[in-house]
Design a protein around this nucleic acid. Sequence first.
RNA 1: GGGUGCGUAGCUCAGAGGGAGAGCGUCUGCCUUACGAGCAGAAGGUCGUAGGUUCGAGUCCUGCCGCACCCACCA
Length: 862
Amino acid sequence: MDLGTRYTPEQIEKKWYEKWVERGYFKPRGVGKPFVIVIPPPNVTGTIHMGHALNLTLQDILVRFKRMQGYDTLWVPGEDHAGIATQNAVEKYLESQGKNRHQLGKEQFIKVVWEWTTKYRTYIREQIKTLGASVDWSRERFTLDEGLSKAVRKVFVELYKKGLIYKGKYMVNWCPRCKTVLSDEEVEHEEKTSKLYFIRYPFVDGDGEIVVATTRPETMLGDTAVAVNPSDERYIKLIGKKVLLPLMNREIPVIADQYVDPEFGTGAVKITPAHDPNDFEVAQRHNLPLVDIFTDDAVVNENGGKYYGLDRYKAREAVLKDLEEQGYLVKVEEISNAIGYCYRCENVVEPRLMDQWFVKMKPLSIKAIEAVENGEVKFVPDRWKKVYLHWMHNVKDWCVSRQLWWGHQIPIWYCQDCKEVIVSEIDVTQCPKCGSKSLKQDEDVLDTWFSSALWPFSTLGWPEETEDLRKYYPTTTLVTGFDIIFFWVARMIIMGYQFMNEKPFSDVYIHQLIRDKFGRRMSKSLGNGIDPIEMSSKYGTDPVRFTLAILAAQGSDIKFDERYFDTYRKFANKIWNATRFAVMNLEGYENVNLSSLSLVDRWILSRLAKTIKIVTEALENYEFNVAAKQIYDFFWDELCDWYIEAVKPQLNGSEKRRIQNVLVKLLDDSLRLLHPFMPFLSEELWQALPIANESIVIASWPQFDSSLVDEDAEKSFGRVMNIVRGIRNVKAELNIPVRQPLNVFVLGKTLTDEEEFYISKLAVVDKVEYVEFKPRKCATAYVDEEKQVFVDVEGLDLQSEIKRLEKNISKLRDDLDWNLKKLSDRDFLEHAPESVIEECKQKIANIEQRLKIMRELLEDLK
RNA sequence: GGGUGCGUAGCUCAGAGGGAGAGCGUCUGCCUUACGAGCAGAAGGUCGUAGGUUCGAGUCCUGCCGCACCCACCA
């Protein structure tokens, strides 16, 4: 194969993916221990963003790693119908066409959404492929496909029959823009400075007034009481009196309720039962009437008197204006309070009293709590366990009905004649009680997360008892971001135990969220998003993946800068060229055993063995960054900068054959280690190696071979590296061109032939001479207790050399002092472990020896 | 009001009990039998702050100061 001088991702990435799919590599082998991941299904609203890219990359790294290790790996792909999000996206699209969903009607609208969905699913699929994700496309699912819809209905019906789903009238979160209720999790709270208005409510009997404080003056239109704390001395006498509600001229009572905090505001609260959860509860306790003043788009309704028809903000202005004019507004203060926003459209959520469907969570949470507490389901990093448990312990009933058109319609039918409520997994056409055919299905659909909660088993075929379900449930690992722990992870655990009687997965790896370089969330509105597909075509998919992996430390977010990609594109190029160099030199390669290894061979193979160990262990512990860093350092610093450089001079000699073998082994194993991170590049280059077979995708993972660990070689070559660095340093600091060959004198125990050889080549040395006395007028390159290395510099500037030596001596002396101090400390000697003390003594001996030598050298110069 | 995470080189971040690391940036050299997307060398840090534990603390504990996020029905 002919490798060009540059790494060109666009040329190598196109050709492999389809080949891999065609050959069925991404399907489970069917033998071995299963390793199963279900993808967090992307929403069909649009495109994949950087967070998906991170998510997909980490999953793919695990899957490819496990596949190479011989597991029966399965990664199930799919997409989520994403109820509100998709409906909103399509509505926006319609709007751009000058239409709205009501004009189309429900049936037609849903048709449009399906077309949209089909289009975006195709698009998302392409992006997942672009990123190289080794998912099994033959098992792709969609949360609204037939099988999953069946699962949803079955779950609903069963929960209903067990009394775990009920319908009831409660205070819910209403989004006036999306015109649907939301679960508590779907409301995002943000701390804002608001105005606190103090309003005068005069007593009916004309005897004074009571002042209430509120942030929402417009809701006074629906006030049905004023509440004070029963123990509040100031107001005790007023309890039971009636005030005249300003603007509305309604009489409402002053009541006493523990809920009121005497410290806040005036200690008197206006009670608007239909528009505030607390007020609602107060009203329940005191049998107060409810006055709903808003329509479903948060416009004042007919209960709002003259304000009828104004939206909530206009109404607020109008109410304030009138209050002020009529002298009811006492004062305005600024306070900070949390305001709830719809997580899909960012409009302010309106609390509303409505009849909705709920899932009773408490009984369902018991197993889900137990499982995480006893480690059956493990969070990584484990601090998320606390977050999960805190939520689960305080879980409230889950409002699951949505007033949307896009989603799983609730499988409940109401008989129009006998009012019977029928729950059924299949469509009902006749009332089982009265036989009437006049039935109406509940209009609402289910929360999109209801179907997501079933994902780990519904995708494997449940409720059918499929082979896949039997074999691949429970799944192994879930990889996701912390932003959906409550929405998704928690509910999957609940449903897994409820319907499969088993956990949905063993490990939950929670990765970071990707933010922009200023730490802000990437979003369309900020325009700060970085498109992974664009990055992929700009830098290559492999560099993008590697970048994401090496940034994936177990922190809580990644501040992202596009420049990172450049670093790892360079790395890819480095790998490309190192392999190219090797391949260029593999003339007449024959696969023979590694034998009679040279020093540098033994050194690099020892390093390789350790690298394999570190990378394997890191991946097993989800330490993606550690694994990636190890590969990077090993490949670049050790393999390229030292091994290949050391071996170059021998490539045309008699050593060639051995070096070829070592090089091939190094590249073979390195590319295998690299494969989960850079699948395309590793495949392309691996195919250029003489030992390649079908595909690196199905090649085996390198095994740690302890027999290759060679501490002597590491020590010996380590010294070679230090001496080489010393000589290079002399050259650099004394302005001698690196390539200029110089003579080197070695005093003390001689170097081995091999050491001498590598030093000569790597440091560009003309001649190494062993001497019995210190040579004069030479620069000191290296000194240890056994060896001293000097560089013969023509016209050595004594002053610079003295300076160099003095600098080194002073460093060494500090070093020595530190160690001496330690060793003279009785406490240290008593408490520190023997090995540490021994090490300290060793150091002192070494330093003293070196110091002595260097002082002599200095004297000599002076 | 509770909780979590983070303050380490100019920038972005690793490191989690035995004398501080990387990438980018900066400075100095270099056409060297793959790679200038490269090679060699160097400068740069009392590891936010004050205490504590320990023979020994970026590393463990506590307080404080900053930053970010999550949860919570005080209008």
